[in-house]
Lab assay of single mutants.
Amino acid sequence: KKRTSIEVSVKGALESHFLKCPKPSAQEITNLADSLQLEKEVVRVWFCNRRQKEKR
């Protein structure tokens, strides 16, 4: 499966949402994916990866 490159503006939106809520619910992920026009899975994985980055 190909990697999804996320635009800078979208990254900013994801980042600001992450600061408010690092573990969004499935519903929040769906809403966020719809508003940013990304697949739910891409948003879910982004949050997962971002939480791991926070641990490092």
Rank of each mutant, 00 (worst) to 15 (best):
F18C: 00
T4M: 11
L19C: 08
E41S: 06
L36H: 04
C48K: 10
N49Q: 13
V45C: 07
R51V: 07
S25Y: 03
N31S: 12
V8T: 15
S35A: 12
Q52Y: 06
L32S: 00
A13L: 10
A13G: 04
I29E: 05
T30F: 10
E7L: 10
E15W: 03
L38C: 04
R56E: 15
F47M: 08
R56V: 12
V42R: 06
K55R: 10
Q52T: 06
K20F: 04
K55L: 13
E7Q: 12
E28C: 04
A33Q: 00
S9P: 10
T30D: 14
K23W: 10
C48L: 11
E54N: 04
T30C: 12
V8L: 15
E39S: 11
L32P: 00
V10S: 08
T30P: 01
S9N: 15
N31L: 13
Q52R: 08
T4S: 10
V43C: 02
L19S: 11
N31F: 08
V43Q: 01
V45A: 14
V43P: 02
R44E: 15
K2H: 04
N31A: 10
S9G: 13
F18E: 01
R51M: 13
E41R: 05
L14K: 00
I6S: 10
C21A: 06
T4V: 09
L36M: 08
L38A: 02
I29K: 00
R3C: 04
T4R: 06
S5H: 15
E54D: 14
F18G: 00
R3K: 14
V42H: 05
F18A: 02
V45R: 09
S25I: 02
P24K: 00
E15S: 00
A13M: 09
F18L: 00
K55G: 14
H17Q: 08
S25M: 03
S5A: 15
V8Q: 15
C21P: 02
I6G: 10
K11T: 12
P24L: 01
K53Q: 12
S16F: 06
Q52A: 14
Q37M: 09
N31I: 13
D34N: 15
E39K: 06
L38E: 02
A13C: 07
Q37C: 08
K53S: 14
K1A: 10
L14Q: 00
N49W: 05
N49I: 08
G12V: 15
I6R: 09
T30M: 11
L14T: 02
K23E: 12
S5M: 15
W46G: 04
E54V: 06
L19G: 06
V43I: 05
Q37F: 05
E28Y: 11
L38W: 02
P24G: 00
E15N: 00
H17E: 07
E54K: 03
S5T: 15
A13K: 13
V45T: 12
L19K: 11
K23F: 12
K1D: 09
T4Q: 13
L14W: 00
N49S: 09
G12Q: 09
K40W: 10
N31D: 14
E39V: 03
N49D: 07
A13I: 11
A13Q: 09
V8P: 15
K53V: 12
K11W: 09
L19R: 12
H17F: 09
C48S: 14
E7N: 14
A26S: 08
V45M: 11
R50L: 02
N31G: 10
K2I: 04
S9K: 13
R3F: 09
R50E: 03
K55V: 12
K40I: 14
V8Y: 04
E15A: 01
T4A: 08
Q37W: 04
S35D: 08
K55D: 10
V10P: 04
C21K: 04
E28A: 09
A33E: 00
L32N: 01
F47C: 01
P24E: 01
K23G: 06
C48M: 13
E39A: 08
E15G: 00
N31M: 12
I29C: 03
K1C: 09
S5E: 11
S16M: 10
K2W: 05
K20E: 05
E7D: 14
E54G: 06
A13P: 05
A33G: 03
E41M: 03
Q37Y: 05
K11Q: 12
L38H: 02
I6F: 06
E7Y: 05
R44Y: 03
K2L: 13
E7R: 11
K20H: 06
I6C: 09
A26G: 10
K55Q: 08
E7W: 04
L36D: 00
K11F: 07
